[in-house]
Amino acid sequence: MVKYKDDAEDDSLNAVFAALADPTRRKVLRDLEQGNLSVGELAQPHGMSLPGFMKHLRVLEEAGLVTRAKDGRVVNLAIAPEPMQEAAMWLSRYEKFWSVRLDALGRYLYRQEELNPPWKEAQRKASRKEDRPSTSPGTTPSAPKKSGARGPTRKR
């Protein structure tokens, strides 16, 4: 895969979208919407080893989507909304782009349907089928009534 040198904004967006690409990390963010949670509380419903789960948290933290605070021996995590807002703004530009294109496609298809209603096409096909004679020479032979002779058997 070819990688191009991006500016800092693109690097942060790339990290956010890469972090959001995994369902485990999206679930962690949904859990954190309720408020701050400890690493143990977040890891428990996922059924994976703590070191494996910590890798997911590290990706979220490097993308800036979560912040951690240590209280004694307990590490609490909180959601950080800023990177998600930047990603939402980036997506909104393309939402406008695609909305305009899809609206134009809808208008085009509506006009096509008005000019050529689907029921008229079905009527045309039906009338063409009735007008042409059958090209087969006769009737189709029926299948044989009994099976053929017994095939070879395997001796053991």
Rank of each mutant, 00 (worst) to 15 (best):
I79V: 07
I79W: 01
I79R: 05
I79K: 06
I79Q: 07
I79T: 06
A80I: 00
A80M: 03
A80P: 00
A80G: 02
A80T: 04
P81K: 08
P81Q: 10
P81R: 12
P81L: 05
P81F: 04
P81I: 07
P81W: 05
P81A: 06
E82S: 03
E82Q: 03
E82V: 00
E82I: 00
E82C: 01
E82H: 03
P83Y: 01
P83W: 01
P83V: 00
P83N: 02
P83L: 00
M84D: 06
M84C: 15
M84E: 12
M84G: 13
M84P: 10
M84I: 15
Q85W: 12
Q85P: 02
E86F: 02
E86K: 11
E86M: 04
E86L: 04
E86S: 13
E86Q: 15
E86I: 07
A87V: 03
A87M: 03
A87D: 08
A87S: 07
A87N: 08
A87P: 01
A88K: 10
A88Y: 10
A88S: 13
M89L: 13
M89G: 10
M89T: 05
M89D: 13
M89H: 15
W90R: 00
W90A: 05
W90C: 01
W90E: 02
W90Q: 00
L91H: 01
L91V: 09
L91C: 15
L91S: 15
S92R: 13
S92F: 14
R93N: 13
R93C: 10
R93Q: 10
R93F: 14
Y94M: 06
Y94S: 04
Y94W: 09
E95R: 15
E95H: 15
E95Q: 14
E95A: 11
K96P: 02
K96Q: 10
K96M: 11
K96A: 06
K96W: 14
K96H: 14
K96N: 10
K96F: 08
K96Y: 12
F97C: 08
F97V: 15
F97I: 14
F97K: 15
F97H: 15
W98T: 09
S99W: 15
S99C: 12
S99G: 13
S99I: 14
S99T: 14
S99M: 12
V100F: 00
V100T: 05
V100S: 07
V100G: 02
V100I: 06
V100R: 03
V100L: 02
V100Q: 04
V100D: 06
R101G: 05
R101K: 08
R101D: 09
R101W: 09
L102I: 03
L102V: 04
L102N: 09
L102C: 05
L102F: 11
D103F: 12
D103K: 06
D103Y: 03
D103T: 11
D103I: 08
D103C: 02
A104L: 11
A104W: 11
A104S: 11
L105T: 01
L105K: 13
L105C: 00
L105R: 05
L105G: 02
L105E: 01
G106F: 07
G106T: 03
G106K: 02
G106R: 05
G106S: 09
G106L: 05
G106C: 08
R107H: 09
R107Y: 06
R107T: 03
Y108W: 14
Y108I: 09
Y108T: 07
Y108K: 10
L109A: 09
L109V: 07
L109R: 12
Y110A: 11
Y110S: 04
Y110H: 12
Y110R: 14
Y110V: 04
Y110M: 13
